[in-house]
Amino acid sequence: LRLEVKLGQGCFGEVWMGTWNGTTRVAIKTLKPGTMSPEAFLQEAQVMKKLRHEKLVQLYAVVSEEPIYIVTEYMSKGSLLDFLKGETGKYLRLPQLVDMAAQIASGMAYVERMNYVHRDLRAANILVGENLVCKVADFGLARLIEDNEYTARQGAKFPIKWTAPEAALYGRFTIKSDVWSFGILLTELTTKGRVPYPGMVNREVLDQVERGYRMPCPPECPESLHDLMCQCWRKEPEERPTFEYLQAFL
């Protein structure tokens, strides 16, 4: 395994491009020591290896001592969030954005069929390849993070704006909380990567959403798509659509 080009840095580690087995181009995620327990990670990795779908980033291998390494397929255009905010983002029109959403829903419909939960679905965790191919990455890892700023769910590192209220408040993460996050991801797509709930801080978002506030229809977004977002944001988790439905609708 060779680490060649550093692609990015996040709160919990770095991402590199490299070569595996001398020939395969891969992405390598390294986790800061202390982010998660190697034992817990190894268990999760076994499950992650079983998830194989064309719209999920394929896991190739893991190094399960500290520092933990995760070796996955390489996606040339990086994260969907950076892609939307970058040069190419300007030229993306609604049909392409909807197609990308459908690809993500397709990957998540598979996660749904496998009775698995992602827990951290957002544009930053979707990767883009050639020809606007989108794949879901980092599934299941969020559960293992041991950082206090994260586990408190009120901490600075927790993605509260993407998280369903029952998950943020009571830790009830299910495929239905993933559906909520998918609704937020749809706003990221239609606004080219704007942060959700602009002008609001995490605490406010939690309070307002509890009181029934939902983001309005983004500019140039059809009402039918906003309606779909609002279905994803129904207060009762069981009233939210399935990913199978979302995939078919898109």
Rank of each mutant, 00 (worst) to 15 (best):
E112S: 15
L185A: 07
W20E: 15
V201K: 07
A102G: 12
W233K: 02
P196Q: 01
Q58I: 08
M48H: 07
G8K: 02
T24M: 09
T24V: 07
G22Q: 10
E244N: 13
M17V: 07
E223K: 13
F173K: 02
T187E: 07
L81S: 15
G155V: 03
M200C: 08
L144D: 09
G171C: 07
Q231G: 11
E236D: 10
E210I: 09
E149S: 07
R172I: 10
R25V: 11
E54P: 13
T23H: 13
L246F: 09
A101Q: 06
L189F: 11
D120S: 00
E54L: 11
L186W: 05
L186V: 06
T151D: 05
K49I: 04
Q9I: 04
P165T: 14
P165E: 09
V209T: 14
N148A: 05
V195A: 12
P222K: 08
L189P: 00
C11I: 02
P216R: 11
C11R: 01
R93A: 06
P241V: 05
C230T: 08
Q43D: 08
K157S: 04
A142M: 04
M215V: 06
E14M: 15
S37A: 08
E244H: 11
I28C: 13
W20N: 14
L246D: 03
P237Y: 14
P95G: 09
E244G: 12
E239H: 15
A45M: 02
L185R: 01
P216C: 08
R240F: 00
Q9F: 08
E244D: 11
Q46A: 13
V201P: 05
L189E: 06
V63E: 03
E65A: 09
Y213C: 06
S106P: 05
A105F: 04
K55Q: 12
F249W: 08
R113G: 12
E223F: 14
T19H: 11
P196A: 04
T19C: 12
V136I: 11
R93E: 05
R194H: 08
R119F: 03
S79F: 02
E244L: 08
A164E: 08
V209K: 01
L144N: 09
T242R: 12
M17D: 14
W16H: 15
D207S: 05
L186Q: 04
C230R: 13
L1V: 15
R194M: 07
L127Q: 00
G86A: 09
K32A: 02
L94V: 07
Y170D: 08
M200A: 07
Y110H: 10
S79M: 04
E87M: 14
P241G: 10
R172D: 01
V15P: 02
F249S: 06
V98E: 06
P165L: 09
P198E: 07
F158Q: 02
H226I: 05
P218L: 08
R234L: 11
M48K: 01
E4P: 15
F182G: 01
F249I: 10
E146I: 10
Q9K: 05
T174L: 15
R122G: 01
K161W: 00
V195F: 10
G140W: 02
R119V: 08
K32S: 04
R2Y: 06
C232G: 07
Y150A: 02
E188M: 01
T24I: 13
R93L: 07
P196V: 11
P237Q: 14
M36F: 01
G10E: 03
M215K: 05
V62P: 00
G107F: 01
M17W: 13
M229H: 10
L81T: 14
A156F: 08
T88M: 13
R234H: 13
L7G: 15
P196M: 05
Y150R: 02
R143D: 02
R211H: 11
D120L: 00
W180T: 00
A152R: 03
F243R: 01
W233M: 06
L80P: 03
P38R: 12
Q9Y: 07
L80H: 02
L250W: 07
A142R: 00
V195I: 12
L94Q: 06
Q43P: 02
S106T: 10
T24W: 15
V136C: 04
T35K: 15
Q154S: 08
A156Y: 05
T24F: 06
R214H: 13
M48P: 03
K135E: 08
I104A: 06
K161N: 04
P95K: 10
F158H: 02
H118L: 01
A101R: 02
D120Y: 01
L250G: 08
A152Q: 04
T88S: 14
L225V: 06
T163C: 01
V117T: 05
L92S: 12
A45F: 01
A45H: 02
S37L: 07
N21K: 07
R234V: 08
W233S: 08
R93T: 06
D227Y: 14
N148R: 06
V47D: 03
I160V: 15
W16S: 15
T191F: 11
E44G: 00
P219I: 15
R234W: 12
L81F: 14
D138F: 00
C232M: 08
M17T: 07
V71H: 02
M75S: 05
L185P: 01
K176G: 14
